[in-house]
């Protein structure tokens, strides 16, 4: 961290706002909100996520029926006052199953993102702050992992360790690490080479104070945005694995596997597939929207 590299070192690409494999596309022109406050889209998203969180914490408050109770008299019944989203092939109430499935969805999305962003940030910061050798080593490792498409990497991990909820969370989390590591490393390097770190050195601050006071806070600043958007991505990946039959086992209510089973009744019951699909989509849209608005706000404040 002595002399700022000049002509000799190739410029690091700016920390891309685009995460390969996620949807973190720069949202600056998208916002339905003003620069200072959040727009309606943010609050609608927050409300949706709040509802899902409530369902995850206390499903019995929201669910009209027992999610596992079968009713052979009402198999594949269309939406009605009794069953607002209809029933499935065993006569179970789809609305109740969706409510009870929320916990799994949240655990998967939050858990996998926590692993991916958490480990990725640590690796990225270490690489960005470390010496050339350490950085080189970590980044070559990241290069290699990036060559595996995330879904396939997750599948490989499941093939090795087996399926089940916990392993799915682990698989999605681990598969997401390289992307975040690379992003945070880029951010760390950009901050390390920034004018304000040079200025901090210029007023005689020591290395420890520069790292803790300027480099770290700015390097991990995008993490909250990345994590918010990442929850949506992880949820989608989890749904994909459930669909392939690698998630939880029936009859546990789970959105992805409900969708998967609904495939067999496409011609008979449109509602079976429609509502779980909408539930997942609503969750992902909400996290993506919140993430983008947070991002717009962060960018709006600091340029």
């Amino acid at each position: 961290m002595s002399a700022t590299p000049e002509v000799t070192e190739a410029a690091e690409p700016p920390p891309a706002a685009v995460l390969a494999g996620t949807v973190a596309v720069p949202g600056r022109r998208w916002t339905a909100g003003s620069r200072r406050g959040f727009g309606w889209a943010f609050w609608v998203s927050a409300a949706v996520l709040g509802l899902i969180a409530l369902a995850a914490v206390a499903p019995s408050l929201l669910a009209p029926h027992d999610p596992l109770a079968t009713d052979l008299a009402a198999v594949l019944a269309p939406p009605s006052a009794e069953h607002v989203f209809g029933t499935d092939e065993s006569g179970r109430d789809i609305a109740s199953r969706l409510v009870h499935g929320a916990r799994n969805a949240v655990l998967l999305g939050v858990g996998a993102t926590a692993i991916a962003v958490g480990v990725g940030s640590v690796v990225g910061v270490i690489a960005g702050l470390g010496n050339r050798l350490l950085d080189g080593l970590l980044m070559r490792l990241t290069d290699v992992s990036l060559a595996f498409p995330e879904l396939l990497l997750a599948l490989l991990i499941i093939a090795v360790f087996g399926g089940g909820t916990l392993n799915v969370v682990l698989a999605i989390g681990i598969a997401g690490i390289p992307n975040y590591a690379r992003l945070i490393r880029g951010q760390t390097l950009a901050v390390r080479r920034s004018g304000y770190v040079e200025a901090a050195r210029g007023i005689g601050l020591n290395r420890r104070r520069i790292v803790t006071g300027h480099v770290l806070p700015n390097a991990i600043r995008p993490v909250i945005v990345l994590a918010t958007i990442g929850i949506g991505t992880a949820t989608l990946a989890g749904a994909g694995l459930s669909f392939l039959g690698l998630g939880v086992s029936p009859p546990t209510p789970e959105w992805g596997s409900m969708l998967s089973v609904s495939r067999n009744y496409l011609e008979l019951a449109w509602w079976y597939g429609a509502f779980p699909g909408l539930a997942i989509t609503a969750l992902v849209i909400s996290t993506t929207t919140m993430g983008r608005q947070l991002q717009a706000r962060v960018e709006g404040r600091t340029g």
Binding site: S194, G195, Y196, E198, A199, A200, R201, G202, I203, G204, L205, N206, G213, H214, P217, N218, R221, R301, T302, G303
Partner: peptide
């Protein structure tokens, strides 16, 4: 570090030399 305090610099574009999170107060207090 002691020597650096003796010699200061002002650039063409000072914006990049300010931590984007900081207010004028915090910059000067530091």
């Amino acid at each position: 570090a002691e020597l650096r305090r003796q010699i200061q610099v002002v650039y063409q574009d000072p914006l990049s030399s300010f931590d984007p999170r900081h207010t004028v107060r915090r910059i000067l207090t530091e």
